[in-house]
Design a protein around this nucleic acid. Structure first.
Length: 481
RNA sequence: GGAGGCGUAGCUCAGCUGGCAGAGCAGCGGACUCUUAAUCCGCGGGUCGUGGGUUCAAAUCCCUCCGCCUCUACCA
């Protein structure tokens, strides 16, 4: 960002700044008592009323001995009017040294122009902050996607749609907390730095804690700590915070992402299903302003009840009625017809899951609970009462994306040990003994759920990429030449 | 990691059958005391992502590297 011509703008702005200083203006002013935000001033508009307002100069229209500007703050845009007669020779000349993007504070009387625009006729003004670099253009805004992510402040400063997305994000977090608090759930915070990264199957980020000379991992899920809290008698808890997974970037993956995990003692997969249904509908109302949510070409109807279908049925729907009775090599051939390549050692279960993830999941645009997943792929969930090969879980899919898995949690410590040891194989150190010991003290039966907040926000704001709902998404660090 | 696309002024974009690097906005100078994408007159502004190659001549064709995007791979 140090191109030769960029400096031309900077030099001009620096010159304007020095000139303002010479005239007695502090280019980086301090606190300013404004009447309210621009939106509040507009809402309480009354001709003749004296107000103080602050904002960034968004546009300027110079008429010679008078000048119009648009101020912009986080709430609105408001026109101000500067006249030489009103400001005096010096004040008006000083205002001539203002540049687009400068923060100023103004005081003056409200009036309506001939063309009907609500305006402040400025009697006095102050410098709040000089902008030494130009903002992106007023009409097209900032479109360059890389710049929008790397310099999000520019994106926010000139694209109202971006501000709206993150306003929604904030409202969503507040609404989630209010919703859960109202149902007796307590928010907790558990370690992000863990000696063992458990609760999910993902590569963790590794770090080192010098004081203890201990290798640590950034958490991939809070699950195993939240279950310790269930043992401790925290019956209804949730955690809304960051998880980290050392994996690739994609349209729907960011290495740090926000997950909401909820546990309810004496609940099960059914109570979680009801909870997430109510919560998503509530979020649609409060965050999106309706339950028919546009996503690209299609409209997603978030009105409950939502479709519920067993994993096995989905596969039969797609692959034919006899699917589950097929020999592996025949299944492999039919998978290949669907463009799904099965690896050499795979049996029917692995091939089926590959088809589910690669073919079926993306077709589930309307909210769908996929239930009764194979037990082998959900080691922390209890088996279905009527079929030990199925886990008593759901996976909520919206817009073709996995949004929330919900479980009847496994609370049998011996069974849990068998599964974790089976999963760890020879890698016994990966078994979280501390967690198993906690379970042996008795964890109440519970329903548990994890909600991918970023992906849910994508649905609730029509965003096509997870980067668009994360303020500073992960990008490759820029190398200095 | 693999495949494809993109990278030109502060911003948004043209130019890409090789032939003097362009427009709008922004900036600078001038006119204008109700404009609002203000208008009018004039002017300046470029490492065409980087490095190399082909050529009399490269923003344009070829290769390297960097970054971004999409797909893919990894991903309970």
């Amino acid at each position: 960002m140090t191109e030769a011509t960029g400096d031309q703008y900077r030099e001009q702005r620096l010159a304007n700044m020095r000139e303002l200083q010479r005239m007695g203006y502090d280019p980086f002013g301090s606190a300013f008592a404004r009447t309210g935000t621009l939106a509040e001033i507009r809402a309480a508009f009354a001709a003749g009323r004296e107000v103080s307002a602050a904002g960034r100069i968004a546009t300027m229209r110079d008429m010679g001995k008078s000048r119009f500007m648009d101020l912009r703050d986080g709430s609105d845009r408001f026109q101000i009017y500067l006249r030489r007669d009103a400001l005096g020779e010096e004040g008006f000349a000083a205002a001539g040294r203002l540049d687009l993007g400068d923060h100023i504070g103004v005081t003056g009387a409200l009036f309506t122009t001939r063309s009907g625009e609500q305006t402040i006729e400025v009697r006095a003004w102050r410098m709040m902050a000089k902008a030494l670099r130009p903002l992106p253009e007023k009409w097209h805004g900032l479109k360059d996607v890389e710049a929008r992510y790397r310099q999000r402040y520019l994106d926010l400063a000139c694209n109202p749609e971006t501000r709206e997305i993150f306003a929604r994000r904030s409202r969503a977090a507040a609404a989630v907390r209010a919703f859960l608090n109202a149902r007796g759930f307590q928010e907790v915070e558990t370690p992000m730095m863990q000696p063992q990264a458990g609760g999910a199957a993902a590569r963790p980020f590794a770090t080192h804690y010098a004081a203890l000379n201990a290798d640590m991992f950034l958490r991939i899920a809070p699950e195993l700590y939240l279950k310790r809290l269930l043992v401790g008698g925290c019956d209804r808890i949730f955690e809304l915070n960051r998880c980290f997974r050392n994996e690739g970037l994609s349209r729907t993956h960011n290495p740090e992402f926000t997950m909401l995990e909820i546990y309810e003692a004496y609940g099960d997969v059914q109570s979680m299903k009801r909870l997430v249904t109510d919560m998503v509908a509530h979020l649609a109302d409060t965050v999106y302003g309706g339950r028919a949510v546009r996503m690209g070409e299609t409209t997603i109807d978030l009105n409950p009840p939502w479709r519920e279908v067993a994993y096995r049925e989905l596969l039969e729907e797609t692959m034919g009625a006899g699917w589950h009775a097929l020999p592996a090599d025949e299944a492999r051939r039919r998978a290949a017809e669907r463009g799904v390549a099965a690896e050499p050692g795979w049996g029917l279960a692995e091939i089926s899951h590959e088809i589910y993830e690669k073919v079926i999941e993306r077709t589930l645009v309307q909210p769908t609970f996929v239930t009764r997943l194979p037990a082998a792929i959900v080691p922390l969930a209890r088996a279905c009462p009527d079929d030990a090969s199925c886990a008593d879980v759901f996976e909520l899919v919206i817009g073709g994306q996995e949004i929330a898995p919900g479980y009847t949690e496994l609370n049998d410590p011996l069974e849990q040990r068998r599964r974790l040891e089976g999963q760890a194989g020879a890698d016994r150190e990966k078994v979280d003994e501390d967690f198993l010991e906690a379970l042996e003290h008795g964890m109440p039966p519970a329903g548990g759920m994890g909600v991918g907040i970023d992906r849910l926000l994508m649905v609730l704001s029509g965003a096509e990429a997870i980067r668009d709902v994360i303020l500073f998404p992960q990008l490759r660090p820029r190398k200095e030449p």
